[in-house]
């Protein structure tokens, strides 16, 4: 089995989700007499490229021509397809990030490949090729058979462990012969909130709802998040009232996340909200209403006033962190 992994970088650094995807692919390869090629697209140093071998890539290819210096679904997907065709790959793994979601379907269409997104399991190849994905924003799972000879899987970030399985991987520079005429979009501005943990990739998330009473109290949430190295999130009413940006809204009509720890403060736990967070490994609910539905979905709960509880937790977190340091 020949596996290709899209090794996504941001400003020349590979993302955590890239290492997850390579670790995932390396485990499939190990069990199926296969090999893994990591495909880097864009400007990445040789030193950074070599990092990919650490997680089990047998071979690294890099497309670094000028056309790839800024992201475009059109050009990037063609590079992946070019690599897949040159190497006769039959499995293509992409992490289901914003960029991954743009590239994966285009690559699938170029290769007439069956595609499954939101994948949370290793493929079961005993009888065909079956993977598990989340559906209904995490309210359920679906098992899906892929019937094409070439397959594309977009795996959910934070679902698979990063494993050290070092290989000495040769780095090869490739050129897909793609010109600027293949790119129609032109990026005019990129604004990233610097120094903040990205919500979709965060392992720890501190989330709050209407119980916080107003945007002026959010410094308490941000403070706790900073201490723990967590991302901040919010409920739908909070983003609807513009207390917090829409990009922080988690739930069925917001984003679905899968952190190791989700702390919900002053969020009652409507079914739509739970859908977006129920795949979290550990859930903590803090709410003054003991009947709040969140307590049914939580591992730990504190019934009480957020304004009384938050300072206590924040102090404990501070003490814990200084002890760790």
């Amino acid at each position: 089995m020949k596996i290709i992994v899209f090794a996504e970088n941001q400003d020349g650094n590979f993302k955590k989700s890239t290492f997850e995807a390579i670790s995932y692919a390396a485990q499939i390869a190990a069990n199926n007499n296969g090999n893994v090629t990591a495909v880097s697209i864009g400007n990445v140093s040789a030193e950074k490229l070599a990092e990919l071998g650490k997680y089990g890539a047998d071979h690294i290819v890099s497309y670094a021509q000028e056309v790839f210096h800024s992201f475009s679904g059109e050009a990037y997907s063609k590079a992946i397809s070019h690599a897949a065709k040159s190497l006769n790959a039959n499995l293509i793994i992409v992490s289901n990030t914003y960029s991954g979601k743009t590239i994966a379907p285009r690559t699938a269409a170029q290769l007439s490949a069956g595609i499954v997104s939101g994948v949370i399991s290793f493929p079961d190849m005993q009888n065909g090729f079956k993977v598990r994905r989340t559906v209904f924003s995490g309210k359920a799972y679906a098992d899906v058979n892929v019937n094409t000879s070439i397959k594309v899987l977009a795996i959910t970030p934070n679902s698979f462990a990063i494993l050290d399985q070092p290989k000495t991987a040769a780095i090869e520079i490739m050129d897909a012969g793609i010109g600027s005429e293949n790119v129609h979009t032109k990026s005019t501005e990129i604004a990233r909130t610097s120094g903040k943990v990205v919500l979709t990739e965060a392992e720890l998330v501190i989330s709050a709802g209407r119980g916080m009473k107003g945007p002026e109290n959010w410094h308490m949430i941000e403070n706790l998040a900073d201490i723990l190295g967590a991302a901040t999130a919010c409920s739908k009413p909070v983003s609807d009232m513009h207390w917090r940006p829409h990009s922080e809204h988690v739930g069925q009509t917001g984003i679905t996340i899968k952190p190791n720890l989700y702390i919900a403060i002053g969020i009652s736990g409507a079914i739509q909200h739970l859908a977006g967070v129920s795949s979290s490994k550990v859930i903590v609910a803090i709410n003054k209403d003991p009947e709040a539905p969140f307590f049914k979905a939580a591992d730990y709960g504190i019934v009480g006033d957020a304004f009384e509880i938050l300072p206590l937790i924040t102090e404990a977190a501070k003490a814990f962190k200084s002890q760790q340091a």
């Binding site: 069956g114 595609i115 499954v116 799972y141 679906a142 098992d143 058979n145 892929v146 019937n147």
Partner: peptide, 10 residues
Amino acid sequence: NTLTTSFELP
């Protein structure tokens, strides 16, 4: 080219 064979609730 894909087929959902079964569902499961968490």
